[in-house]
């Protein structure tokens, strides 16, 4: 599980190769799918469908940025789907209550940071294993949301609310947000002090401590950042449809975690990039769309995605053994 005391001592170059190797596998798979399916059904490449694939799932990729950081530090968060559900409902409720729009969009970010900073504090200073803590948090958020809202949908949202339906430079806003945030986060994690610290803590806790990194403060910081991305994700999620269902999107946390892992983030910590996670999100969306366009029964969708995840994980293991 998360606490593996010994880690294989790959060098930095080897680690970088492992991370990027997986990214290339996913990228190759996406391109192959696009070529294959467009032969079967040319409408697959229509602008409307491309928007669905790239923009409709952007909120997952944005949440995956924070999850990538959490997993790289050697932790996990199974409550993020519930948090996104709660924050989307908060945004919708404030919008209906007539708050100024900039506050409506800002509130989920602030609350996301606050909740996850508290979670990070409990993990770092009260030594509660992150999987246990976030399992508990999942129950609290999921149950609490229904207790407070009664499960009622939010429908009469003001017209100015729908941020995710806007365009920037002729491109859907979620697509732009996803791309900018992913690239910025990848650059920041590779070249800035705190970004490098995340890898240091995840790859060797004791060594990180020895060179004077505060592991506890890093953990709280990473969880807080993760909360920020969950907040942004929630705003994109809430504003792309005309209703907010006031429930936790089922299995969202699993989709996000799986995207990170397929994208090359090692669950043992220390390895991975946010670009891989974003590509994996697009990979899932492409598969889903491809199945619709090739008339595969929707009921087999989950089996196909599950099977592909299995194959990707096993291929990754085989490739790493080949390199070792």
């Amino acid at each position: 599980m998360t606490a593996i005391p010994h880690r294989s001592s790959q060098g930095r170059i080897g680690r970088a190769l492992v991370g990027h190797g997986q990214v290339l596998v996913v990228l190759g798979a996406i391109i192959a799918l696009f070529i294959g399916v467009s032969f079967v059904n040319a409408r697959f490449l229509s602008p409307a469908n491309l928007t669905t694939i790239f923009s409709g799932n952007a909120y997952i990729a944005v949440a995956a940025i924070g999850m990538t950081m959490v997993i790289i530090t050697g932790h996990i968060d199974v409550s993020v789907g519930a948090l996104i559900g709660v924050l989307a409902t908060v945004a919708g409720t404030l919008a209906v209550a007539g708050w100024p729009m900039w506050l409506v969009w800002l509130a989920p970010l602030v609350i996301g940071v606050a909740v996850n900073a508290a979670a990070g504090w409990l993990v770092a200073y009260a030594h509660i294993p992150s999987i246990v803590l976030t399992l508990g948090l999942l129950s609290i958020l999921k149950g609490g949301l229904i207790v407070v809202t009664g499960g009622e949908w939010i429908t009469d949202l003001p017209p100015g609310f729908f941020l995710a339906q806007r365009d920037v430079f002729g491109l859907p806003l979620p697509l732009v947000v996803m791309t900018v945030l992913t690239l910025a986060a990848a650059w920041w994690m590779a070249h800035f002090r705190f970004g490098r610290t995340i890898y240091a803590v995840g790859s060797n806790l004791e060594a990180a401590r020895a060179i004077g990194i505060s592991v506890e403060r890093t953990t709280v910081g990473v969880f807080a950042l993760h909360g920020l991305f969950a907040g942004i994700s929630a705003v994109l999620f809430a504003t792309q449809l005309t209703t907010i269902q006031s429930t936790v999107p089922p299995n969202l946390e699993l989709v996000i975690i799986t995207a990170c892992v397929i994208g090359g983030v090692s669950i043992l910590g220390g390895v991975g990039t946010v670009i891989g996670a974003a590509l994996a999100t697009i990979f899932f969306a492409t598969i889903t769309s491809a199945m619709i366009f090739t008339n595969v029964s929707a009921y087999w969708l989950r089996a196909v995605i599950g099977g592909l995840i299995l194959i990707t994980v096993l291929a990754d293991v085989a490739r790493r053994r080949g390199q070792a």
Binding site: M1, T2, I76, I131, L254, I257, T258, V261, I267, L268, S297, Y299, W300, L301, R302, A303, V304, I305, G306, G307, I309, L310, V313, L314, V317
Partner: peptide, 27 residues
């Protein structure tokens, strides 16, 4: 055999086995 961490292995089969149940039954 493949040394996949249990969290990842069963995360994948969680989707796969549920998918088989949905596929075979057509819901």
């Amino acid at each position: 055999r493949f040394r996949v961490p249990p969290l990842i292995a069963t995360l994948a089969t969680m989707a796969f086995y549920r998918g088989l149940a949905e596929g075979f039954s057509q819901s």
